[in-house]
Amino acid sequence: MAILSKISSAFINVFVLTWDFGLFILNLLTFSHKPGHVVPPHAAGHGLTWPEYVPPKEGDSRSACPMLNAMANHGILPHDGKNITFKELNTKVRQTFNFAPSFCFFVPKFSADFLNRSYWSGHFDLAELSLHNAIEHDASLTRHDAALVPDQGKPDSQLVDDLLKEATGKMPDGSPLLTIPDLSRALSKRRIDARKTNAAYSENLFHNMFGSANSSTMLTIFGGRINDLKPMLAEERFPEDWEPRILARYGLTMAKFNGTVLPVEFGVKTKVAKQ
């Protein structure tokens, strides 16, 4: 059974990567969405109008991911963050953030696998996604390490503030913009600090790449715009009149995303980062 499972997983991975590359090509050949029309009709957020924001209540389940928590805070996912299906997560994330369908299948499927549940019929609570060293990892830009703060469902205001202060870019109107070098520098500082403060700190290539990937959504989906990132990271709330900055017809593919993730990770310099 173990061998069959590995063969099945390998087949699925090859299929998803092929599918993803096909969508990448289609994005090059088709017209993009017009600004203001990225979120599809009948989905929450269409027309730049998001459901009411309600902060989490006692007993609600939240994850280490600000974007998923924001979806629950706005009722796009169940507000209590519980009993969510992996297939529902796929659909809602795709509609809300304009990730490609391939991307939106791969990550929930990966989550189902590390939780030992069926992608097709399984359910989960948001807090379960914070299983240490699965998707959640040390040296997060918005959370202290799980060994220091077991509840990963809430952002750390000081870490968020430190991150936003790294922005050196400027929008045409003068508002601050987070760039690839800014993000690399922030990750460098966090990894150095986490090593010093967490005796149980762990790091490997997979977790580093996943950390850079998680962080790179700030540059892709949010376009690096600090005015949009501040409410999302600090309050886990959608800014007013916001929509994904990815306009591609078939959404942000993994193939396209890697064009941001790899430069971010390659720019991390943990031996020379400023203290």
Rank of each mutant, 00 (worst) to 15 (best):
P176M: 07
G59D: 10
R225I: 12
L17P: 00
V261Y: 03
K82S: 09
N69D: 15
F114T: 09
V93D: 00
N13G: 08
E265W: 13
A147P: 04
K230N: 07
D125G: 03
G169T: 06
G223C: 02
D228S: 14
A194W: 00
L163E: 07
V54R: 12
T30D: 05
N90R: 14
A72V: 05
H37E: 14
F21D: 01
E235I: 03
R117L: 11
L252H: 02
G45N: 05
N116G: 10
L219V: 05
A134Q: 15
T197P: 00
N227H: 14
F99K: 01
F266G: 08
L26P: 02
D60C: 10
S111E: 09
E235A: 10
L141N: 04
S118F: 13
L177C: 10
P244A: 07
L115W: 06
L164C: 06
S140T: 08
P108D: 06
F15W: 09
A44F: 06
W50K: 04
L178Y: 04
H79W: 04
D193V: 09
L233S: 01
V16S: 00
L29N: 02
K6Y: 08
P51C: 07
I7W: 08
A199K: 14
P231D: 09
I180S: 02
L262V: 15
K165I: 04
N13V: 07
P239F: 02
S5V: 04
A72Q: 04
L129P: 00
L68P: 00
E240D: 13
P40C: 08
L229K: 03
L26D: 01
E265Y: 11
G59S: 09
K256E: 12
D161E: 15
H132G: 07
A255R: 08
V268E: 03
F110T: 09
G122W: 04
S188G: 15
L126H: 00
P55A: 11
A213R: 04
D182F: 06
T49V: 15
V38E: 00
E235S: 12
H42V: 13
P55G: 12
F106S: 12
R225A: 05
F206P: 00
T18Q: 04
V93L: 09
T96N: 08
A234W: 01
E235T: 12
F206V: 12
N73K: 05
W242P: 02
F11T: 10
T217N: 13
W242E: 03
K57F: 01
E243V: 01
G251E: 05
N116P: 00
A64H: 15
L219D: 04
I135Y: 10
I3R: 09
A112T: 06
S215E: 03
P51D: 10
F31W: 08
V16G: 00
F114Y: 15
S8G: 08
K230D: 14
N90M: 14
T91K: 14
M232G: 02
C65S: 15
F206T: 13
L29E: 05
N133Q: 14
E265N: 10
T96V: 14
T85A: 03
D182R: 04
S9C: 07
E52Y: 05
V268F: 02
I76D: 01
F206K: 13
I7L: 14
L177I: 08
P101H: 07
N227R: 15
I76R: 02
D161K: 15
K269L: 11
D113E: 13
K256Q: 12
N133K: 13
R143F: 05
L233V: 01
F222R: 02
L68W: 13
H37G: 02
A146Q: 15
E265L: 12
P231E: 08
R225H: 09
